[in-house]
Design a protein around this nucleic acid. Structure first.
Length: 852
RNA sequence: GCUGGGAUGGCGGAAUUGGUAGACGCCCAGGACUUAAAAUCCUGUGCCUUUAGGGGCGUGCGGGUUCGAUUCCCGCUCCCAGCACCA
């Protein structure tokens, strides 16, 4: 994933790009043609905030930041193809944001509508549903409110089923939790719409239900306070009902607060609705737990079989009728005896204490009684459709993507408003619609472009009359929805990319980033790819074959209670004491104040961050990268602890010394080859370790593990260090074995610590050319050489380890068994006992089961 | 509350997917080198127990399957993340 040019790289970036770079190096060393790109997500709000706060031009601010961050990436030695960089804020790039927008407009996938949008008061910005997930702003974490605005939408809902169903194609390569979060977000729900007549009125209330089979248990129709029927009948309601509804509406309009549980509340409107199946008259209630923006804004309340309806009915003493029973014969104590009778004379759920929400068999449901829930659901929906009061339906939670932003620093929306012709799309040949150099920035949430007549005053592409441009810009997530395709053809001036050129590289083989974009960027990118497929630009459904979500890098954070949120940077401003487990027991600032502490995402602005530049300065880029890869599995959270990095430094220095101590012997005896008669056991042992390591490291890379191959390299380096023969006394065979081990070690180190590896490689080979110039390849693995001469076989008696045998790998079961029984330690436990059974696992173990 | 993931030494974490638990590294202790320190090297390092050889216990807790369970099954506890009345 491309970085936002905030101005400084943090350790999260280092982790992400170190892993990506390691993989790129590994694949290149394996002989693959690798496209390892980088780009800049360079449109967005912080640039504009800087303009408001400090009066700098957003472009200048952004480009300076890119310069700084590119320098940092180059200092850590990321091996990107710098020629292919893309920059979202350049007209050469955003021209195609606009191109796509116009294409989607043609396809009917872009439309404008006035609606309640998510609004972040803190950022003074509009948010898409995805960016407001959980009722909090994705950028600043503050609660989201609503605001009426007219804005452009992209029809993500045209692809809901594909977004769900195509997950099957990427299931193997994506983390399960990301797919899960996406499918929850899309929220497919299969059920039925049912219309209830309103008594004494032509109006009908339509509800959505997934459990039409429970409709005979409905005790009320509950609608949202904002439901049109409420507005329409408000005049007929008593003053206290109206007041209550107003109160609920006011409460609904407040930003969601997840700390406090919402108590069920509501009021009987006095209206009556008719259950179309039973003909029963039901009260119409307003309930605070019914939301206007899901389903139809109205539900049928079935307390006996729905938890929320149960709570609601209990609070207001509404009747509860059980209409579903468990399929299995219910135990005598369940169902029957616990049920209180009610005026309906039907059994009720009062005494049960909770709703029965499983499927079962329908009861008390007129002619439908006796059917299973599954049959009832299907047949009742069909019946409803036949009698024109309902139909089976699938609803989704996913909404269209609102992309209009009242912001300057983004791609202008290429739409023109003409008094005569109405909404007119800009002509393709007039793209890009360029941003002016500057605009009056206020940060108050109004479009700065609306104050720049040179920008918005234009002529209508249709009638040539005077017209005005749309003064909003696109959500920056538009830029990141397709940038990875641009890498394949970054200079194209006619199209976003050439289809054939892109086809060679795409879809992306491996995508790496944080899982915080699970329902934002990753849904948009998938949507965009499907649109591109329908445009004929690509021939596949999914943009990213494999996704790796790396865990956050977090640091210990210290707060000063008095001054509020002030955070101190370790270790110069805080004195910390720890318990035996390394957990902090107290933290005191240099001024002597006691501080609160916790763990938070590491960043410079929070003051708990380690600056990558500092790391490089102190330890070097190679050690920093090696440590970040080694410290924890890539998908885990990494709690930053500087102590461990010394280990990485020591390891690199050890390898350096190892090469130093052998380079003369190895360099001067290049003719030394394997196969001399006196092949020593030591040489064979080292070669075995070398080849086992090649296999382990390769397998680890293939399965995206970055910590375990480092451990394997450390083992190999230890084995070379333990080699018992002095360089000057080594035989040709031994020289060969050491040269092979060192060469392999250095090559396998390249993905983690490329600078050190490059230097050592050239020294070792004895010429000035390094890994790149030599077009070096990862060492070939030999199964034959990796095979052990002798293997250790544990012997268990009754499953407990009692002895170990050394045996030939090809030893037969009988031989192993005989050796086990001959073993002295084993005999202590078997002598005088009855042998019940002997289990021999070839090449693994022997287990003797005895009795008595 | 629902959903998903997890729990292995003082710490980060390994373990060929049912076969020697604790690789590798950090920390710590002891030693060598040094006038001394740093660096480096060597040794030890799961817990309990034993003079020693050794013995016992041990992968969150309780059960089960198996010759054998960190791994599979059932039931709990706790932690982390996501969602937040989704009808």
């Amino acid at each position: 994933m491309l970085p936002y040019p905030s101005g400084n790289l943090h350790m999260g970036h280092v982790r992400n790009y170190s892993a990506g770079d390691a993989l790129a190096w590994y694949k290149r060393l394996k002989g693959f043609n690798v496209l390892h790109p980088i780009g800049w997500d360079s449109f967005g709000q912080p640039a504009e905030d800087a303009a408001v706060k400090r009066g700098v031009n957003p472009r200048t601010w952004t480009e300076e930041n890119i310069e700084i961050m590119r320098g940092q990436l180059q200092r850590i030695g990321v091996s990107c193809d710098w020629r292919r960089q893309m920059y979202a804020h350049t007209p050469e790039y955003y021209k195609f944001d606009q191109w796509f927008f116009l294409k989607m407009y043609e396809m009917g996938l872009a439309y404008k509508k006035k609606t309640q949008v998510n609004w972040c008061e803190h950022d003074q910005a509009t948010l898409s549903n995805e960016q407001a997930s959980g009722g909090i702003c994705w950028r600043c974490g503050n609660p989201v409110t609503k605001k009426d605005l007219e804005q452009w939408f992209l029809k993500t809902t045209a692809y809901t089923d594909q977004l769900l169903d195509d997950m099957a194609e990427i299931e193997a390569g994506w983390p399960a939790n990301v797919l899960k979060r996406q499918s929850d977000w899309i929220g497919r729900s299969e059920g039925a719409f049912v219309k209830f007549d309103v008594k004494g009125s032509d109006e009908r209330i339509e509800v959505f239900t997934t459990r039409i089979d429970t409709i005979y248990g409905a005790n009320a129709v509950v609608v949202a306070a904002e439901h049109p029927i409420v507005e329409a009948k408000l005049a007929m309601m008593s003053a206290n009902v109206v007041a209550k509804i107003a109160a609920i509406r006011a409460e609904n309009a407040k930003p969601t607060d997840h700390e406090t549980e919402i108590k069920k509340d509501g009021i009987d409107t006095g209206l009556k609705a008719i259950n179309p199946f039973s003909g029963e008259e039901l009260s119409v209630w307003v309930g605070n737990y019914v939301m206007m923006d899901y389903g139809t804004g109205a539900v049928m309340s079935v307390p006996a079989h729905d938890e929320r309806d149960f709570d609601f009915a209990k609070k207001f003493g509404l009747p509860m009728v059980m209409v579903i029973e468990t399929k299995a014969e219910p135990p005598a104590s369940a169902g029957g005896t616990n049920v209180e009778s009610h005026s309906t004379s039907k059994p009720t759920a009062h005494a049960v204490g909770s709703a029965f929400t499983d499927y079962g068999v329908m009861v008390n449901s007129g002619e439908w009684s006796g059917k299973t829930s599954e049959d009832g659901k299907r047949e009742m929906a069909e019946y409803a459709e036949k009698h024109e009061f309902g139909r089976a339906a699938t609803t989704y939670r996913l909404r269209d993507w609102g992309i209009s932003r009242q912001r300057f620093w983004g791609s202008p929306i290429p739409i023109i408003y003409c008094d005569k012709c109405g909404v007119v799309p800009e002509k393709f040949e007039n793209l890009p619609v360029r941003l002016p150099d500057t605009a009056p920035f206020t940060g108050t949430g109004e479009s700065p472009l609306a104050k720049v007549p040179e920008f918005y005053e234009t002529t209508c592409p249709k009638c040539d009359g005077p017209a005005k441009r749309d003064t909003d810009t696109m959500d920056t997530f538009v830029d990141s929805s397709w940038y990875y395709f641009r890498y394949t053809d970054p200079q194209n001036e006619v199209l976003p990319f050439d289809t054939e050129t892109a086809a060679y590289w795409t879809p992306v083989d491996q995508y790496i980033g944080g899982d915080d974009h699970a329902v934002m960027h990753l849904i948009y990118a998938r949507f965009w790819t499907k649109v591109m497929r329908d445009l004929g630009l690509v021939k596949f459904n999914e943009p990213f074959k494999r996704l790796l979500t790396q865990g956050m890098v977090v640091g210990e954070t210290f707060f000063d209670d008095e001054t509020g949120k002030k955070v101190y940077h370790m270790p110069d401003k805080v004195t910390v004491t720890r318990d035996a487990k390394g957990k902090i027991t107290s933290a005191v600032s240099t001024e002597g104040k006691t501080l609160k502490y916790g763990i938070e995402r590491m960043s410079k602005s929070k003051g708990n961050g380690v600056d990558p530049d500092e790391m490089i300065e102190i330890y070097g880029a190679d050690a920093a990268r090696l440590f970040v890869m080694f410290a924890a599995p890539i998908e885990n959270e990494l709690v930053w602890n500087e102590a461990g990095i010394e280990g990485a430094v020591r390891f690199l220095q050890r390898v350096w010394r190892l090469v130093g101590s052998w380079r003369l012997a190895v360099g001067s005896r290049q003719s030394a080859v394997v196969g001399s008669e006196e092949s020593s056991a030591e040489a064979r042992k080292l070669r075995r370790k070398t080849h086992q390591t090649i296999k382990r490291v390769s397998d680890n890379f293939e399965s995206l593990q970055f910590n375990t191959p480092v451990a394997a390299l450390m083992e190999l380096s230890n084995a070379i260090g333990d080699f018992p023969v002095e360089p000057d006394n080594a035989s040709d065979d031994e020289i060969f074995a050491v040269r092979e081990a060192l060469t392999s070690l250095v090559l396998m180190l390249t993905p983690f610590s490329p600078h050190t590896a490059e230097e050592l490689f050239s020294v070792l080979i004895g010429n000035e050319k390094g890994i790149v110039a030599n077009d070096a390849r990862f060492s070939e693995y030999s199964e034959e050489l990796a095979k052990a001469d002798e293997i250790e076989i544990p012997v268990q008696v009754n499953g407990k380890l009692r002895s170990r045998l050394m045996a030939l790998p090809e030893a037969s079961n009988e031989e192993l068994e005989a050796m086990a029984f001959a073993d002295e330690k084993v005999r202590e436990y078997t002598d005088g006992k009855e042998v019940v059974k002997v289990v021999v696992v070839p090449k693994r173990l022997v287990n003797i089961v005895v009795k008595g």
